[in-house]
Design a protein around this nucleic acid. Structure first.
Length: 442
DNA sequence: GCATGATCATGC
DNA sequence: GCATGATCATGC
């Protein structure tokens, strides 16, 4: 034990034991400091304070491990508490910068990323918007590494990203390309660009990160009932989409009623999610661990014989005051647009019955975000100028529109300038969904 | 036939 | 009681 440190930097167990003493406490309680920089001014300042004042080592931005003697990385990550009292990761967990020039020469098993995620000391704290960071409570401090059952999907994610760099398309990388691991943008400002090896087009700097949905699942895995999709011998190396398709295929051609009967389910509102659990062999009252980690929501879409979805897709009703005030990037709508879906597709047959015909994963492409923003800003302008009753029509926007979504026309929300107006929400256009589904099915 | 407005129904 | 997912109804 090194006296002035409080732990032995040559002994991983000693480091972890020392870290665990933080659990249940705030930095103010354990450190003799009065102020740290606000995370609003400098991201990661809470984590920096832990490194600097609790573990007392020099901040490094080089690529050596934080605890170099034992090869362990320290990662701190904020959790937020929902109104229902559940904890969720507030943000993705950034592991290490991607060097486009080097990464194309790596293979996954020996990648820089795996080295960084091989042995992690994970410290999670409860973030509160109205609290001094010094008072954030530490909830978890534990040693962690990527579990072996997640490796096939993470490898697939890694290769998806690296493949784009190898094809000279690093500038086209998107967080929506992948499931657990993502290449998230990371730069001081949005104008910074880095060179890539197989194209002259410079690309945004990106870092390897585990998605917020993945970190949420990691944190809550022990608390909530979650089940893996059990893999048969021949399915061990399948990525998530391949596995899900494999399981759904034998049921193609059945109607929703036939499927419900097969799994002994009555008519119920969340039938899609329940049938999905049934087909994937997960108990009815459990969550699908893989879907939690990837943040995937199953959604039924009924396609008419001509391929057009029968209905548009709705989001929760919005608050007129919030839309009036919030910039697009801070809005709830923006958050909903980051959602990944498993579309469970039923297609109308010649006899008029809707039969299970396909499944695909989908997330709104980054390129369409601008069009969605245009819809948001147009509605925002309507509300601000005293026309909250005027919606954005589906003919006015390629991707989405605004429509009522309440109990009935008496079901209203207050507005800044028009009194009470019927509850409304944003919707994905049917035509847009049709195009996107066609693309997703190839 | 489609866009838009309106409403139903389940489950928390 | 209300949010949310799903669907119906009307009028252009």
């Amino acid at each position: 034990m090194t006296e002035n440190l409080g732990y032995n930097p040559d002994d991983a167990d000693s480091i972890v034991e020392y870290a665990r003493k933080l659990v249940g406490h705030s930095l103010r309680e354990v450190l003799d400091i009065k102020v740290i920089q606000s995370p609003k001014q400098r991201r990661g300042s809470w984590g920096n304070a832990v490194e600097e004042y609790y573990f007392k080592y020099d901040l490094n931005s080089d690529s050596n491990p934080d605890f170099a003697q034992v090869g362990m990385e320290l990662k701190t990550t904020p959790l937020k508490e929902s109104t229902q009292g559940k904890f969720a990761a507030k943000e993705r967990l950034v592991l290490t910068m991607i060097n486009y020039m080097d990464v194309v020469r790596e293979d996954f098993e020996h990648s820089h990323l795996l080295q960084k995620a091989n042995d992690v000391l994970l410290i999670s704290y409860l973030w509160r918007s109205d609290e001094d960071p010094l008072d954030y409570k530490v909830l978890v401090a534990d040693r962690w590494h990527i579990p072996s059952e997640d490796i096939p999907q993470i490898k697939k994610d890694w290769e998806t990203v690296v493949q784009k760099v190898r094809e000279g398309r690093a500038h086209e990388i998107s967080g929506s390309d992948t499931m657990y691991l993502e290449a998230c943008t990371k730069a001081a400002d949005s104008t910074v660009r880095r060179p890539q090896p197989f194209s002259d087009i410079p690309a945004k700097p990106r870092a390897w990160a585990l998605k917020a949905s993945y970190m949420t699942a990691v944190q809550s895995g022990l608390l909530e009932k979650m089940q893996h999709i059990q893999r048969a011998a021949g399915e061990k190396d399948l990525d998530l989409l391949a596995l899900v398709r494999n399981r759904f295929e034998p049921f193609f051609g059945l109607t929703e009623e036939e499927l419900a009967r097969q799994f002994g389910m009555g008519r119920s509102k969340n039938l899609c999610a329940r049938i999905t659990r049934g087909i994937l062999g997960v108990e009815d009252d459990a969550k699908i661990e893989e879907f939690e980690k990837a943040g995937i929501k199953p959604k039924t879409i009924r396609l008419q014989a001509n391929g057009r979805p029968k209905e548009a897709m709705s989001f929760p009703a919005f608050d007129y005051f919030q839309v009036a005030e919030q910039p697009f990037e801070d809005s709830d709508f923006y958050g909903y647009l980051q959602q990944k879906y498993l579309f469970v597709l039923y297609r109308e047959d010649s006899d008029g019955a809707y039969r299970l015909s396909d499944v695909c994963f989908w997330q709104m492409p980054d390129n369409d975000m601008e069009e969605a923003e245009r819809c948001y800003l147009q509605m925002q302008n309507n509300i601000r100028t005293g026309h909250a009753d005027v919606s954005v029509r589906s003919t006015e926007n390629r991707c989405c529109h605004v429509r009522p979504h309440g109990q009935n026309s008496q079901d209203t929300n207050p507005t800044p300038h028009n009194g009470d107006v019927v509850k409304k929400c944003f919707w994905f256009n049917q035509g847009y969904l049709q195009d996107e589904i066609a693309k997703a099915l190839g």
